[in-house]
Design a protein around this nucleic acid. Structure first.
Lengths: 214, 214, 214, 214
DNA sequence: AATGAATGAGTTTTCATTCAT
DNA sequence: TATGAATGAAAACTCATTCAT
């Protein structure tokens, strides 16, 4: 106890540091990394940038991650691990093509809007695609989608189409539309999902007509 | 004297040897940048990398571009300036929805396969970034597509749908599918364009059935 | 426990070893800069020169100063901050014109000889620059002198002369003579101050006669 | 004549280049150097800066000067060669101490104001003293003044004082006062010279009284 | 002679990582 | 374990000078 008092006396104004657990520090770094990577892109982000967005010291970073690369991977994995189960669950419960497609887009657009600011910000910098495409978790998410499409084909739910291209089309529409959606004043994930779903189910002629152009 | 006249006549038209070398060097740097960016991604690429991929001296780079950023933008603009007129021409001649959509994808996929160095380089680098496109020229290309969609709606060619989302969907599918296509052993731009066109015209159920899955 | 108390007590006062090293390194850089600037002149000096004159690593320089310019300014300010109080004290105690002038030159010449590293270094470099002085601290020192002259005029100590020109004359004589003095084998600040004082009090005809020319 | 026409035809809009003689180009470079050195100081000035202040090409510089150093020396020498004879003439005609001192300051202050913008501008950058002090011509000018003082002592015109210190005092007052003078709205070289002359002849108590403080 | 782009050595600057405290 | 200054390899950038035209 004497020692504790000593410590407290020796630290003028660092109250609260004792509260920080290892897990919290790791999360603090991950959150800071997410924000900074999204703002400057992977290449332009320095470890110092991440640390600066943190109450921690530079050396502390290395108690949790070996390098910039590692924290980046961890961050990507965290994102993928959050959305992948959501998407998979949505698809697994689909009994019809409509449900499969609708649930995929609905889940994705809602996730983008509610849980994660990155996907929007990521689009503004040159490293975006790299960030999106190349960590194992993200690639696994794509593979998962293709596999689910293949299963749907096998079970007769889907017609026997090119699963790889269909996956690509879904992914492309999801990312590109989410960016446009996020830029609108009143982002409406349901409307966006309805649009994408109609497109995939019936093509352009099935898309909902806009009031304005009617 | 004949030679002198020749030289005089030649100067304004072909701009002289100096001028030609200058243009060549600029192009050498742009081409090297395209290759290196495609190979390592924007963030991981250094100006030194670009110079190393060139027979030129380091200082020469700075006679043409201020920074990595600037050469990257120039490279994107060059790409956009090449493909935009092709795409616009293709769309302008469209008399039906089918032609509009089909010509867009066909032109894009063929360009990716034939003319674009970086996409070719990407084929050999599974985890390469797709060049992010938001320089003025590229954005103008997107705007052009949306405007053409709006015109098509106004003329009754297209139903009155959300032009912004439709543009995003086309762009997303074009980029994402072109990447998948480029990775295949026998890339077939016609087949890819047919797939995308069928999707946009009639939805999933209109997509061509694959023999394998049939 | 005694040791712990000792540490606690020592921390705020002596600022800890880290803090001490930091101050030392800053001083090491400043001292090296002073020597190198004096030897090569401001323009010919590179940051590398300064670092080389130091046991520190190149990056360490940038932990303390942004540029050559900044370390130069800091160095000048340091000098000005050292000599300004000495000069002001000397003038404040002056009850006569003689004391005012005499004390000013005496203090300046003695400082140059004893305390100022760069002037000492200059002695070994005939064509060294005299550090140009126009950082805020230095200018403030000049202003202080002019103000003290104005006060002396107001109190009747000095005749009502042009204080700005008189200040300039004193400064010019002080700097130029100090340089000549420093180059002599046996620099004698008292003799130099007597010379300048006699000049300012009675003009050329009051200057001490040299034995040689008599 | 045919060739001349050919040349004219080949040069779209370079009229007047034929007029430039070697001597003119040399002078163009010297004048540009004077301006640029005065503005940025010796160290911060690049050969490119000088060329940019010129209608000439970079390669042309090296037809006239070997290096930055050489053009700098030439410029300094030009200045010193202009003012040194003026000063020497003024002193040689002096029959009294008054005339010697008065003519020196009068000539210097008028030169600074009329013929040369450098001396003022030079004071604003760190390399000033170096620029002023160390070219052979400038040093020779100082030596000349000291020699003239020694001759004046030998002839009985001056009392037997320390010629080196007196020279330094004159130089210091001349440069420092010229800077203050140049900053005034209505620079008056006669008044400045009268001030300095009175100081050197009779000390502070002989200085002209200002109306304001009377 | 004049031109001005190319050169590359040298300088400035950054920043991931280490390590003494 | 936390801290944050030190490190130095590597990247960015400059610029005096050369040389083909």
């Amino acid at each position: 106890m004497t020692m504790e008092q000593t410590e407290i006396a020796a630290r003028p104004a660092s109250a609260g540091k004792r509260e920080r657990t290892k897990q919290q520090n790791r999360q603090i770094i991950l959150d800071a990394a997410r924000t900074v990577f999204a703002e400057h892109g992977y290449g332009a982000t320095t470890v110092r940038d991440i640390i600066r967005a943190t109450p921690l010291a530079s050396g502390t970073f290395y108690n949790y991650f070996q390098s910039k690369e590692e924290v980046y991977q961890a961050m990507q994995d965290e994102t993928a691990l959050t959305i992948r189960p959501k998407l998979r669950d949505a698809r697994l419960q689909a009994a019809t093509v409509e449900e499969f497609i609708s649930a995929t887009f609905r889940t994705f657009f809602e996730f983008v809007l509610r849980d994660d600011v990155d996907v929007r910000a990521m689009r503004h910098n040159a490293d975006t695609m790299r960030m999106r495409m190349d960590t194992p978790e993200v690639v696994a998410g794509f593979d998962e989608l293709r596999e689910d499409i293949e299963k749907a084909i096998a079970s007769g739910l889907f017609p026997p189409v090119d699963a790889d291209y269909l996956m690509a089309a879904i992914v492309g529409v999801a990312f590109e539309m989410s960016e446009r959606m996020a830029r609108r004043n009143e982002a409406d994930p349901k409307a966006a999902a309805d649009f994408a779903t109609a497109l995939f189910l019936g093509g352009i002629r099935s898309l909902p007509h806009t009031g304005a152009a009617a």
